[in-house]
């Protein structure tokens, strides 16, 4: 893989749920070390797009290539942080066991986790500053800490592409800041895609922004036109690009 290789190439992709289109005619190229934020309303297909890249959902039309291969084959290079609200916090599992799950694709069936797996899991925990909680049950941690555990689980696979679904939901502003600083560091080693319904959380930190509401509006840059935003949010949106705090005001 050379330096200019495309990480993800999505061409003319359509996804239907029960013949209702969720993604329409998506074209997207993600390059190495891209730090892309995808924003859009809930139900606009953001999670679906991530799942298409992960190969969890098969498009009804179009092609998806990840690292030049099918999503299924390339999964082992992809780290995934699912939506936080989907976990059963009563589940009897420790932080350590969760992070090791990130290594499953490297270990193979019928084998115990190797020393290499354990080292990668330890590194990921250290990176997220969660080593001291290694033996804690995941449900006994605070929301922000659990969040770090799930990122550590994704990092344990040493991914070259990191996908985050609504990563800022459920964590407070201070932790969010730390979190985006961490992503700043990570982006030198991998491409990062994060999706969010909250423009303000995303826009400050990412390098490129796309809008998604069944269709994708993307100019391979951080620029969005008012038309893009209107198409995405279905209402006139006023962009305050460089004010502090950065935010987008909606007029209804």
């Amino acid at each position: 893989m050379n330096m200019t290789a495309d990480v993800v190439v999505i061409k003319d992709v359509w996804v239907h749920y029960d013949s209702v289109p969720v993604l329409e005619d998506i074209n997207l190229v993600i390059k190495e070390q891209d730090f892309l934020g995808i924003i859009g309303v809930n139900g606009g297909g953001k999670s679906t797009l991530l799942k298409v890249i992960l190969g969890l959902i098969k498009p009804s039309k179009g092609t998806v290539r990840v690292f030049g291969d099918t999503p299924q084959i390339s999964r082992k290079y992809v780290g995934y942080v699912p939506q936080y609200s989907l976990f059963d916090l009563e589940f009897p599992v420790s932080v350590w066991e969760v992070v090791l799950m990130g290594r499953l694709g490297h270990t193979g069936l019928l084998k115990r986790y190797s020393e290499e797996d354990k080292k990668a899991a330890l590194d990921a925990l250290a990176k997220m500053d969660m080593l001291e909680y290694k033996d804690r049950q995941v449900g006994k941690l605070s929301g922000g800490q659990q969040h770090r555990v799930f990122i550590a689980r994704a990092l344990a696979a040493n991914p070259k592409l990191l996908l985050l679904d609504e990563p800022a939901a459920g964590i407070d502003t201070i932790i969010q800041e730390e979190f985006y600083e961490l992503l700043e560091k990570l982006k030198t080693k991998m491409a990062i895609v994060l999706v969010s319904h909250d423009i303000s959380a995303v826009s400050v930190y990412v390098d490129k922004i796309a809008c998604l509401n069944h269709r994708l509006y993307y100019h391979d840059s951080k620029e969005l036109t008012a038309e893009d935003l209107e198409a995405t949010y279905h209402c006139p949106v006023e962009l305050i690009a460089h004010g502090v705090p950065h935010r987008v005001l909606k007029k209804h």
């Binding site: 999964r75 082992k76 059963d88 969760v98 115990r112 696979a157």
Partner: peptide, 22 residues
Amino acid sequence: YSFYKEFLALCFDEEFATVRGV
């Protein structure tokens, strides 16, 4: 005994287990 770690991942987070090749 043979599939202990896969079963754990399956029960905790089926989707993530799939992403990791289970």
